[in-house]
């Protein structure tokens, strides 16, 4: 599968989905003008990738400083797709990465974690760079 690479803009995150290394990442800020349109290729890629998965271990790193409410729904939809995959014994670990001083990002991560059952959802604190 081709790598999905979307560059960050002021209001949309960088997406890097690499099927060779089984490493997926979404990083930055998410309040795109049209949320559904922005996340459409993300969902498409993800669904095809999950269908092709067998025994590989997948790491999904999500590092979002800020996201708006419609992105929050898109993220929940992503987690639901990953949950379903984990229910089918696919091996996916999600790292929710937040800056040490960003309490809001931690709280959002905790709330997502409460709604997730089979997906391994790690809250990973990132120390502030000096």
């Amino acid at each position: 599968m081709q790598t999905l690479e979307i560059s960050a803009t002021k209001s949309s995150p960088a997406v890097h989905f690499d099927a060779q290394s089984n490493t997926l990442s979404i990083m930055g800020e998410s309040y795109p003008e049209n949320t559904a349109q922005f996340y459409e290729p993300v969902f498409e890629w993800l669904e095809e990738y999950i269908d092709s998965l067998q025994e590989q271990h997948v790491t999904f790193n999500m590092e979002l400083i800020y996201f708006n409410s419609s992105s929050s729904k898109a993220l929940m939809d992503i987690f639901d797709i990953l949950e379903e995959a984990c229910d089918e014994d696919k091996k996916i670990v999600l790292n929710w990465i937040y800056d040490e001083d960003n309490d809001a990002a931690l709280e959002y991560g905790e709330e997502f974690a409460e709604d997730i059952e089979s997906l391994t959802f790690n809250l990973v604190e990132k120390p502030l760079a000096d």
Partner: peptide, 25 residues
């Protein structure tokens, strides 16, 4: 919080161009 989570998992409604959870947020 409960209402936010419930609406976040609900399908997008017809008239709502966003996720419909902006006011709850």
């Amino acid at each position: 919080k409960v209402f936010y989570k419930k609406r976040r998992r609900a399908e997008r409604s017809g008239d709502s161009k966003g996720a419909g959870i902006g006011f709850i947020e």
